[in-house]
Nucleic acid binder design. Sequence first.
DNA 1: CCAGACGTTGTT
DNA 2: GTCTGG
DNA 3: CCAGACGTTGTT
DNA 4: GTCTGG
Length: 221
Amino acid sequence: MCGRFALYEPSDIIQDHFGLDDASELVPNYNIAPGTGILGIAYYENSLVPMFLKWGLIPHWSKAKQTQYKMINARVETVWDKSSFRSAIRYRRCLIPASGFYEWKKTDSGKQPYFISVSGTNIFAMAGIWETWEDKSSGEVIDSCAIVTTEAQGAVKEIHDRMPVTIDRSGYKNWLDPMVQTRDQLKIYQLDHSLITVWPVSPKVNNPRNNGPELIQQVTP
DNA sequence: CCAGACGTTGTT
DNA sequence: GTCTGG
DNA sequence: CCAGACGTTGTT
DNA sequence: GTCTGG
């Protein structure tokens, strides 16, 4: 699955990579956790825009903004079938920029965190879906999102059985195309899994209050 | 029809 | 055990 | 995902 | 809102 990631590439590089018109000022973050605001890129009102999305999807029909369920991930195998995700996968897909993500491997002595990144780049895209929720009485509006997951690819298989769906640059257009509204039309071009690199990192990443480049340094578990 | 759930992961 | 906060 | 709280009354 | 279960 994907429950923590990092985005530390400079804003102007992110802007160029995704072809955005306006830059959003981002500080490097090595410990992005569910429930916080994250950067998503989506077509909205006919243009490609950066959006701040609360990580943890709140369905539009939800009565409370605090959802009982932790919808931080959506399985690609079933996302078209679930009532909570059906309209979002059809009409509101987004790219979620990342420099890498973390997965935890269960061991005899506990859980060991690993950092997963892509050779040759500090920026790639994870597949996301988003939704707008509005409080009918107060008028409060929250845009939220979930990261789409799939079975582990490449080197990730060694540590975990799930990971985010990645989208190769060649697949950005189709994934974001608002005219693509069916499972058959949606083509998922994932990154070449031979580029995926995995190494163990310090358990400092466990605490979401910790941050900084030391979190992605390789350690001996 | 109405009532009630609506999710994933990992662990048992 | 379960929920909230990060 | 993991870490850390989990409560009320009354007083400052 | 939409799907499943009864």
